[in-house]
């Protein structure tokens, strides 16, 4: 078994309010897999991703990232392995220029400045925005912000990338561009989205969450073509699949 993988066993979780948001989830994801997490609004997709990076540790069950159990004292180690892209890019970017923001993580790791420099350049090139390096964050378009957010986590050289609703608020051209960029990465990816067309274009495997439960787990082909299953859970067939019929 390759070393990059995620194991989730019997994961259950509820916010302080008490109603369970995730129930008895089981999942294994291995290297190079690109997994779409789909489900209607409020299904628990974002909560699931946030739990996996340890933003809330009040869960029951077991989560292991590359064999390291997720708990308070392993958090720094685990977080170095995972790049997390927030749904709202404005919540991700907080330094003044793109370059500064991309340098934030490597500097926190205490890397020497030459190495930081190298990582920033590489990360920007991977998402094709090297020319935006000195641009002010406030002056970026929505699409540029999303790519910049991606760059800020690529500079961590993570083993895996989690994205929460990456296609929200992108116009068609930026959306296509993001799909192309994501498909260029060989990383393990978890992409939470209710945009099934986006998932169809970026993921080979899909899991369906409904009411906090893992309802289905299979290839994108199996799940995204299953009209009955999707409709039962408040989703619709991807447009690209309906038109082809």
């Amino acid at each position: 078994m390759s070393h990059v993988h995620i194991d989730v066993e019997n994961l259950s979780f509820s916010y302080e309010s008490g109603t369970p948001v995730l129930r008895e989830m089981n999942l294994h994801v291995s290297e190079n897999e690109s997994v779409g997490i789909i489900g209607a609004n409020g299904a628990g997709k974002s909560t699931f991703l946030k739990l996996l990076v340890g933003l809330n540790l009040n869960f029951t069950g077991k989560v292991r990232i590359e064999e390291i159990p997720l708990e308070k004292k392993t958090l720094p180690k685990i977080r170095e392995k995972i790049g997390y892209v927030f749904q709202d890019s404005d919540s991700q970017l907080f330094m003044t220029t793109v370059g500064e923001d991309v340098a934030f993580a490597p500097r926190n790791y205490g890397l020497p400045e030459e190495e930081v420099e190298k990582r920033v350049q590489e990360a920007l090139e991977k998402v094709h925005i090297a020319h935006l390096r000195d641009k002010s964050i406030f002056k970026l378009s929505g699409g540029e912000k999303k790519l910049a957010s991606l760059a800020t986590i690529l500079s961590m050289t993570p083993d895996m990338i989690f994205l929460d609703e990456p296609s929200v608020a992108l116009d068609p051209r930026n959306r296509r561009n993001l799909i192309r960029v994501l498909n260029e990465f060989g990383h393990l990816k978890l992409i939470a989205s209710h945009d099934l067309d986006f998932i169809w274009d970026t993921c080979s495997r899909v899991i369906l969450i409904s009411g906090g439960q893992l309802i289905a787990d299979g290839t994108a082909d199996e799940i995204l073509r299953d009209q009955a299953l999707l409709e039962e859970n408040g989703l619709e067939l991807p447009l690209s699949l309906t038109e082809r019929k």
Binding site: V53, P76, D90, E100, R107, G110, M156
Partner: peptide, 24 residues
Amino acid sequence: DRANDLYDSMLLRGFDGEFHTGAK
């Protein structure tokens, strides 16, 4: 909510309360 996300995003990128400005 957003401020909370911002702080989380800093934590996820290795922020531990120390500031590294990069400049010499």
